[in-house]
Amino acid sequence: MTQELTQAIVELREADALAMVDRKLAEGVDPVAILAECKTAMDTIGDKFAAGEAFIPELIMAGEIMSGVSARLKPHLQSTPADDDKLGVVVIGTVQGDIHDIGKDIVVTMLDIAGFDVVDLGVDVKVDEFVTAAREKGAKIIAMSCLLTSAIDSMKKVVAAAREAGLNDTKLMIGGAPITEQVVAYTGADGYGKDAVEAVELARQWIGEA
């Protein structure tokens, strides 16, 4: 019974999963327990992605199911689930000169489900916006995305601006199709994730270290 919902989400049976959530809520099941089942499912999908058994559509579909679940649970939750347990603030965006959002959005969903407090600045985000948001929100991580090779310089500028602003406790992560170790070195960022799963893994490592 407890694994039924987990399995429906892992198999991306959207209608089944949402019907189960409705039924559980009607039966008086604790929404926090329902959320825990969902999290187990999302971890499994993340593992399958890392193992090359699931792909971007599966991550997006899983995220879509999770939005549906969250919308159903929200009225039943006393507060945002365990705010105290949030892992920390991640300020994220696609850098200036680039408007591609699909990869960034997947990372947002995955970080959110993993328990980070995600501040999504959107696309074509100016250098100052990253730095200001990171300072105001007390971000532990700034995460930058791009698809265009020409936007790599924007990442470099954000790294320089964050250093200059004295955000010494904020780690800088980059990601996107053109990113390699060479690009990490070029921009001066602290690291990169090859994909959304690696990005979450890296964020967890950094927060663990902190």
């Binding site: 991306l12 959207e14 559509p57 997006i60 579909m61 879509e64 959005d105």
Partner: peptide
């Protein structure tokens, strides 16, 4: 991209 990926499901 996103719309079509969801349509496939």
């Amino acid at each position: 991209t996103r719309g079509l990926m969801l349509d496939v499901f």
